[in-house]
Amino acid sequence: MSSVLFWIIAFVAIGSAFIVVLNKNLFYSAIALVFTFMGVAGLYVFLWADFMAGVQVMIYVGGILVLILFGIMLTNRISSVNISHSNYHQGIGAVIVIGIFFILGWMILETPWLRIVEQEPTQTVGKIGRLLMTEYLLPFEVASVLLLAALIGAAMLSRKAN
């Protein structure tokens, strides 16, 4: 069961990623990105990372993608359907991308992966929470200060100058 489902989800994720890159219409690219994000969330579920999958959907689909769509609709003449973009330097891009693909593939195949023979975790949220509040408290707090700074900065920028 899992393997068939895995291939379907992987196909959706990669196929829609191709649409994101190759489609000429910016809005179509953004919508294809929904399916890429959902596919990646599905792959997280296969890794027994259910909480990560939820975060993926909430942050990327519910937050970042909405922001992208808003950006598209606000920056262009919002009532025009023809929002297009063109791809430059396709030859150089292809060479670099294929190079990165082979390097990554070679690394994935060559790395002696650490295999832990352990029971599949049934619950990940509690562990993540405990680790965030103990071992990784400092990075967690630093990230929140950074986000707060970004928030205040955004409010300052969008404010009308008095």
């Binding site: 929904v34 689909v61 519910g62 769509l69």
Partner: peptide
């Protein structure tokens, strides 16, 4: 959390 997350699909 699942319900909160998937409800964002509606916005899209």
């Amino acid at each position: 959390f699942y319900i909160l997350a998937v409800s964002s699909l509606g916005v899209i």
